[in-house]
């Protein structure tokens, strides 16, 4: 075997690739991710619902933006992570990538449901309709079906978790095209849904007092995703490696912890 120079990043990659290390390292972050997300959630909602001025056209109904847009962003962000993990799972058969992918699905689906339903609740008073088959909404609905499809595929092959994860990964990877469609849908087919308000690269069409709570909520949802995904990935690894020594040690340790 030839000698390989290793650096910190490579070492971290290998560590995070091994289920016991991933389990141990992620354990340090859980509490902080949860606390950060709850704190930011309270702060963001307070700013958004109380401090931010009402919109000159939409009145107070625009405040739905503070849950609708962060949820919609997360529905795409989480799917992007799943697609990435799907590629890693297919090419390198990395178990932790399978865990992260499957652990992202439920919370991603929740964010998609929130985006769809709050969009509907916003559309009724502003557009006069609960639902319109426009490109943005239709592609977001397809995203929900992709999430559900990925979870259903996994459970259909549940007797062999490795095979199940690879089948689910295939759907996740193929479905990435839909995220691109969602992003550009308001540009390509201009319809009832409004265009981009907040942009990373270009100019944002919103005042700072209204934008700040939105960004706080965006971070709050990111941190909650971090918590939910890591915790679920840990459970996934315990379940799929339940016959391994490290899992049995971990479970015994937590047992002693509960008693004391």
């Amino acid at each position: 075997m030839h000698k390989q120079r290793t650096n910190a990043i490579v070492t971290l990659y290998h560590k995070l690739g091994s289920p016991p290390s991933f389990y141990r390292i992620s354990g340090y972050f859980l509490k902080w991710l949860l606390l950060l997300s709850i704190g930011l959630l309270i702060w963001g909602l307070y700013e958004g619902l109380v401090l931010a001025p009402a919109d000159y056209q939409q009145g107070d109904s625009f405040r739905i933006i503070y849950v609708h847009v962060p949820a919609a962003w997360m529905s795409m962000f989480v799917y992007g992570i799943m697609g990435l993990c799907g590629i890693i799972a297919i090419i390198w058969r990395m178990k932790v990538a399978e865990a992260v992918m499957m652990a992202s699905a439920p919370i991603g689906a929740w964010f998609t449901v929130i985006a769809l339903v709050t969009g509907s609740l916003w559309g009724k008073p502003m557009w006069g309709t609960w639902w319109e088959w426009d490109a943005r909404m239709t592609s977001e609905l397809i995203l929900l079906f992709l999430y559900i499809g990925i979870m259903a595929t996994y459970s259909a092959f549940s007797e062999d978790s490795r095979k199940a994860a690879r089948m689910a990964a295939l759907i996740a990877v193929v479905g990435i095209f839909n995220v691109v469609i969602i992003h550009f849908s308001v540009k390509w087919w201009s319809s009832i849904h409004q265009g981009t308000t907040v942009s990373l690269m270009g100019e944002s069409h919103i005042t700072w007092d209204m934008l700040r709570p939105l960004l706080i909520m965006a971070f709050a949802t990111k941190f909650y995703y971090g918590y939910s995904m890591l915790k679920r990935a840990r459970i996934y690894l315990l379940e799929t490696e339940s016959h391994k020594r490290w899992v049995q040690d971990t479970v015994n340790e937590s047992n002693n912890g509960d008693k004391s």
Partner: peptide, 12 residues
């Protein structure tokens, strides 16, 4: 919520 209570609070 300026008359939009149902829509805003259901969303939250």
């Amino acid at each position: 919520m300026g008359g939009y209570a149902f829509y805003v609070w259901s969303s939250i």
